[in-house]
Design a protein around this nucleic acid. Structure first.
Length: 324
DNA sequence: AAGACGAAAGTGGTTGA
DNA sequence: TCAACAACTTTCGTCTT
């Protein structure tokens, strides 16, 4: 029997790293993976983005289909959303092998040693229990919020890190799960309003915010400031607005940023106001209330932001309600 | 009657002494 | 650690479409 089989024998299909796949030279997002050379190369300009990556393919050659099957590596892909990463081996207490025979004395002492270590690592079993609970909560939360699985996996990875750093101790699992999910969404530039995440879980906004900030400090992850533009496609589709409106909204936000209208302002309020203005300009008007609702801000905020935009961007406001 | 407006008071988080 | 502060929310009365 082979007791040494471990994660290194398995294909790593999940990409756990947090880095962006955009070429710093030409801004192209087409990145070519060259697994045999262990490099990632920009498809636009050929710049090598990272080298010395691990080749996850087989390290032997196969000359026929059957051979390829026989020699391929085995095991399910490692997944971070499964609490034990899909790897689990339990050493039985009986001194018998799988066919029920007694073990030889040397084998027996070897097994004894392994068993001892498994018991010693009980720490891990409490961690496992925590993880199992956390992962089912993560599953529930993200399906309720409609979070795609790559982001889930990232959240799961962050959660693992925070367990290792003992951040969960003294805090509720739910709160930490919600915080990691919120963080994962932001890292992948698909931010969700804090309120939305808080509502979907049983955690209040304050606790969620605290956990999130803790996460940032302790894991030292770089998280891009949330950009109002990242909210637009989702909000626009919830309001069933056409794509020209979305484009106009992006334009308005970019101009607002250029004149410093966005600093210190809630990105949600900015997104909402820009959508409001664009919707009126292109004759697909939505009420302040409706927009405020999907953006989870108040009508007052929408109003204040959009008044500023109209005033400072010099949008001549025919039909914009304001004083000519 | 619904939507928009704006004043005033309250809230939670950040900043600087 | 505390007070000042800016941004945002809540609430409410009034005006506009």
């Amino acid at each position: 029997m082979d007791y040494t089989r471990s994660a290194t024998d398995r294909k790593e299909t999940v990409e756990p790293s947090v880095e962006q796949t955009e070429c710093p030279e030409c801004r192209s997002t087409s990145v070519v993976e060259d697994v045999t050379r262990g490099e990632r190369v920009c498809g636009g300009c050929g710049l090598v983005l990272s080298a010395h990556r691990i080749d996850t393919g087989a390290e032997w050659r196969a000359f026929s289909a059957e051979e390829s099957d026989a020699r391929s590596r085995v095991g399910a892909p490692v997944r971070y959303t499964v609490h034990d990463k899909g790897l689990s081996t339990v050493i039985d207490w009986r001194d018998r092998d799988t066919s029920g025979r007694k073990l030889s004395p040397t084998r027996r002492s070897e097994i004894y040693r392994l068993r001892k270590w498994q018991i010693r690592s009980r720490v891990h079993s409490s961690m496992d229990r925590n993880l199992a609970q956390a992962m089912s909560e993560l599953e529930r939360l993200s399906s309720q919020l409609g979070i795609p699985s790559p982001i889930r996996e990232l959240a799961a990875l962050l959660y693992r890190k925070s367990i290792i750093k003992k951040l969960v101790r003294g805090r509720s699992i739910e709160a930490m799960v919600a915080a990691t999910l919120y963080a994962a969404c932001r890292i992948r530039l698909k931010p969700r309003p804090l309120d939305e995440v808080a509502d979907a879980s049983r955690v209040d906004k304050k606790k969620l915010g605290q956990c999130y900030r803790l996460l940032l400090r302790s894991l030292t992850i770089k998280i891009p400031l949330s950009n109002p533009i990242d909210y637009i496609s989702r909000f626009a589709s919830e309001l069933s607005l056409s794509s020209p409106v979305q484009l106009r909204t992006v334009e308005i936000l970019q101009r607002s940023r250029d004149i410093g209208l966005t600093i210190g302002r809630d990105p949600l309020g900015l997104a909402a106001a820009a959508i409001y203005v664009a919707s009126i300009m292109l004759d697909e008007r939505r009420t302040q209330r409706a927009i405020a609702e999907v953006a989870r801000v108040t009508e007052v905020t929408v109003r204040n932001r959009y008044k500023e935009m109209v005033r400072k961007l010099g949008i001549n406001s025919m039909g914009l309600g304001g004083q000519s």
